[in-house]
């Protein structure tokens, strides 16, 4: 995935079954953000793979004061890339019965 300066990783091991997964997001390179970034730390949140869209979560982060409005897109993209990877992995390795 493209280096957006925002890192998103699984906060817990993916069992391949749950639609809702825990993710952790933090800023690796604040220079890649447009808005001024206040270093808050790593933000952990749950994401529903079936019902939610990454851009929606990014917008909630903006509204919660973690990021500037102008960075919603880059945060959304970072989450989207990680979610796509998780879905891809799940498709390749279905959970055992």
């Amino acid at each position: 995935a493209e280096d957006t300066g925002v890192r998103v990783e699984l906060a817990e091991e993916d069992d391949g079954r749950k639609a809702s997964i825990a993710l952790k997001l933090w800023v690796e390179d604040p220079r890649k953000l447009k808005g001024k970034y206040k270093d808050a730390g790593a933000i952990e949140f749950t994401f529903d793979l079936e019902k939610e869209v990454p851009e929606g979560v990014a917008q909630e982060m903006v509204e919660s004061g973690f990021f500037h409005e102008s960075d919603a897109k880059i945060v959304g993209k970072s989450i989207r890339d990680r979610v796509a990877l998780i879905k891809w992995r799940r498709a390749r390795t279905p959970p055992s019965a």
């Binding site: 933090w26 790593a42 949140f45 749950t46 979560v57 909630e60 973690f66």
Partner: peptide, 27 residues
């Protein structure tokens, strides 16, 4: 480290904790 919790009006919970220095890029 200390963790804080921020709850968005839509109900989502964000748990914020310090990032280990080893996970940050060199400036």
């Amino acid at each position: 480290g200390a963790t804080t919790q921020v709850v968005h009006s839509a109900g989502r919970r964000f748990i914020v904790s310090p990032v280990p220095e080893s996970r940050l890029k060199e400036p």
